[in-house]
Design a protein around this nucleic acid. Structure first.
Lengths: 157, 157
DNA sequence: CTAGATGCAAACTGTTTGCTCCGGT
DNA sequence: ACCGGAGCAAACAGTTTGCATCTAG
C-alpha cells in the first residue's frame, strides 16, 4: 500500500498485550496467505473458542494502527490482513480471489507524477495488480468469479 | 483503473436500452464527480420516481459490463461510478472521501515489472492515490475520518 | 409475443457498536 | 484497583436476489 492511510492517529497511546491479541498476531504470522477477518476468526477459534468476531475486527484494527499488521483492501472485496509490516504491493487473482505479494520496490515516483497532476496534497498511493494465478491459468477458466477453481484465497505469499 | 477487470464476460449479448438505463447513463454523465450508487439513485429519482435502488445497482453493473460506465472501487469504501470510459487513475481525499481524476497516463510499465516478480499472468493494475483535497488542506484537519469537513464526496472530476 | 427488465421487499455479507463483565498492568 | 479489553448480540451500510409484473424489440 505504501501509504500513511492507516497511520496511527497520533501514534499509539500504548498497546495492551492481551491473550487474544497475541494469538491473533501469531495466527496471522502463521497464516499461509492474507486471510480475511473471518478466516482469522475461524483459525484463532481453535485456541480461543470463546473469542468473538467483533474482537477479531477490533483487534486487527488496533494492531494495524500500531503498525503490527497491515490491512489489505482491494476493491469492494472483503478486507484482508497481512502480518508483514514492510511495504509491498499485492496481486489478486481475478478468478479465485487469492492474494499474493509482489516482490518489487514501491514506486514513489508515481506520487511525484500525481502531485503535479492534481491540486491534492498527495500523501500516498495504492497499487495492486490483477491477473490469474498459476493454478487458475492451468486449470482453465478465463475469468470466472466464484465458479470455484482455486479456493477463495490463501496460499503462499 | 487500467484493467480488464470489468470487461464483458464474452462481449455483450446486446444491451437493451430501457428508459431507466438511458436516464442512469445520462445522470452519470451530468454528475459532478464520481457518485455512489445511492447518489445516482437519488438523482435519477427526480425523473423516475418509481425506480428502485436494486435497479440502479443492476444497471450500473450491466452498463459497466458493456463498457459504458466504469466502476471505481477504492478500499472498502462504497463503490463509485464514472461515465468516463477512458482509462485514468483516481485520487481520494483521506479526510472527506471525495474522489477525483488524476490526469496522468497509465503506466503500463508497472505491469511488466510485476510480471517478472510473480508467477501470475498479470492482466492489469489498479493505482489510486491518497491525499488531502484542497478544501480539507485549507480547512485544517489532518486525517480525520468522517469528522465532517468536506461532504462525503462529489465535486469536479 | 417473449426474453429480459423493473419494482418491491426481503435476504445477505462484511463490519461496527452498546453494554456489561473481565483481566492486564 | 482501574481502565481498557472481551464477549455477545443487535445494528448498520452496501449490495444482491426472488418473484410477480411490465416492456422493448
Amino acid at each position: 500500500m505504501v501509504t500513511i492511510m492507516d497511520r496511527p492517529r497520533s501514534e499509539g497511546p500504548k498497546l495492551r498485550m492481551t491473550r487474544q491479541r497475541r494469538v491473533l498476531l501469531d495466527a496471522l504470522r502463521q497464516a499461509e496467505g492474507h486471510p480475511t477477518a473471518d478466516e482469522v476468526y475461524r483459525t484463532v477459534r481453535r485456541r480461543l473458542p470463546r473469542i468473538s468476531l467483533g474482537t477479531v475486527y477490533r483487534n486487527l484494527e488496533v494492531l494495524s494502527q500500531h503498525g503490527l499488521v497491515r490491512k489489505i483492501e482491494l476493491g469492494t472485496a472483503p478486507r484482508r490482513f497481512d502480518a508483514e509490516a514492510t511495504s509491498h504491493y499485492h496481486i489478486r487473482c481475478l478468478s479465485c480471489g487469492r492474494v499474493d505479494d509482489v516482490d518489487m520496490r514501491p514506486q514513489v515516483t508515481l506520487e511525484r507524477a500525481a502531485r503535479s497532476a492534481t491540486d491534492y496534497e498527495v500523501t500516498g498511493h495504492r497499487l495492486d495488480f490483477l491477473g490469474l494465478c498459476r493454478h487458475c491459468v492451468t486449470h482453465g477458466d478465463g475469468a470466472g468469479k466464484g465458479s470455484g477453481p482455486g479456493r477463495p484465497n490463501q496460499g503462499g505469499a
